[in-house]
Nucleic acid binder design. Structure first.
Lengths: 186, 186
DNA sequence: TGCACCATGTAATTAGTTACATGATTAC
DNA sequence: GTAATCATGTAACTAATTACATGGTGCA
C-alpha cells in the first residue's frame, strides 16, 4: 500500500540494517562491506541521499549525537514504525532477477581478439578474488557456528553464507581449469 | 591511446559482436539474449544510442539496407579498422570486478522480517531460473561439440559455457538445500 | 610526518531501464 | 483476427558511481 515511488532495493538494504540497530551512514557502508559484500554493495554517494529520502518519507528518524568534542556530530538513524511496516511489505513483491554483467566473461567470449596472455591474467585475478572471498566466508562460517543457536537470524545467515562458499568454490574450481586451458593455447 | 571517453563495456559487447559480422541493432539485442544472456544483458534503450556514438567516433560504419518494400530499412552496422583497433586495445585495461547485487540474497539475509512462505517462494523461483538456464546451456554445449574443432572461437566459447553450467549446477544445488531448510522452519 | 580511519555530504556524470511511438509481416 | 516477430528509435527517469570537499583523531 504505502505508495513508495518504486521499490528500490538499496532502500531496503538500509532499512534492514537499521532494523537491527540504529546506525550512521558511515556505519551502514561499513556493515555492507563487512557482511554483505559477497552479494551486495553500496556507495556513500547512494547511501547519504537515500537516508535523506527515507527521512523525508518518515521511515527513519535522525538524531545528531555529539561525540568527543571537535569530532563531527554523528547522525544516527533509527527505523520508525512506518519503516518497519515498509520493510515487511517489501517482501510482498517478488525480487527482480538481476541482469548479469560479468566483464571477465565478456572478454573471454571475445577471446579471439585478445592479445596473448591477457585472458590468463584476467582469469587468474578472478581466481584470486574468488579464493580471497572464500577464505573470508569460511571465517564467517566459524563465527556463525559460535553464535547462540536460538538467534533468530542464524538460519538465514547460514544460508546466505553457504551460498557464498558454494559459489566461490565453484568459481575457484572453474578458474583453475580455465587457466590451465588457456595456458595450453600458448 | 585513442582517447575513448572511458571504457564502457557495452561498447565492447557491441564491437565484439560486429567483429564477427555486420548486424543491425535488433540483431545485436537478439544475439546478446541468445548467446550471452547467462553473463550479459543489454536493452534497446542502451544499444541504439551507443550505436550512434560508436558511429560518430568512426568505430563502426552504417548502411541502410532496403528490404522487401514496405518494411523499415534495416540499418546494418559494420566494424571499421579503427573499431577493430579499439576492440583489441580494450583488453589492455583489466576488467573492473562487478559489484554484486543479488536481491534474493538480500531478502534472505533479512529473512527475520519476512512473512511466512515468502522466502520459500523466492528460493524456488531462483531454483527454477537456475534449472532453466542450466538446460539451455546443456543444449548449447551439444551445439558447440558439433562445431569444427578448428574454429578459432571454440576454446573460448567452451570456457564461457562451462562457467555457466558449473555456476548453475551450484545454484540449483544450493537452492534445493535452501528450500529444504526453509521448509523446516514451518 | 604521514597514513589510516572516522565522518559527512554534494556535484557531476554515466549507465541503464522502461515506457512510448510506429507500423509492417508472418504464422496460427 | 490476433499474437508474435521484425525493426527503429526517443524521452523520461532512476540508479549509482566517482570525484570533490572538509577536517579531526590516533598511531607508528
Amino acid at each position: 500500500m504505502s505508495n513508495s515511488a518504486r521499490a528500490n532495493p538499496t532502500e531496503f538494504a538500509i532499512l534492514g540494517l537499521l532494523a537491527e540497530r540504529p546506525r550512521s551512514g558511515y556505519d551502514i557502508k561499513k556493515e555492507v562491506e563487512e557482511r554483505l559484500s559477497h552479494f551486495w554493495s553500496e556507495s556513500y554517494g547512494h547511501i547519504y541521499p537515500m537516508l535523506r529520502r527515507l527521512h523525508q518519507r518518515g521511515l527513519i528518524a535522525v538524531s545528531a549525537v555529539e561525540q568527543t568534542p571537535g569530532r563531527p556530530a554523528r547522525n544516527t538513524y533509527t527505523i520508525t514504525d512506518a519503516g518497519q511496516t515498509e520493510l515487511r511489505e517489501w517482501f510482498a513483491t517478488p525480487p527482480s532477477p538481476s541482469r548479469p554483467r560479468n566483464e571477465m566473461l565478456l572478454r573471454l567470449f571475445m577471446g579471439r581478439y585478445a592479445p596473448p596472455g591477457v585472458l590468463q591474467r584476467d582469469v587468474q585475478a578472478y581466481r584470486e578474488r574468488s579464493s580471497a572471498a572464500l577464505s573470508r566466508l569460511r571465517e564467517v562460517e566459524k563465527e556463525l557456528a559460535e553464535l547462540d543457536a536460538a538467534a533468530p537470524d542464524l538460519v538465514y545467515w547460514k544460508l546466505v553464507v553457504s551460498f557464498g562458499t558454494q559459489l566461490f568454490e565453484t568459481l575457484e574450481a572453474w578458474s583453475t581449469m580455465a587457466e590451465r586451458e588457456l595456458k595450453k593455447l600458448g
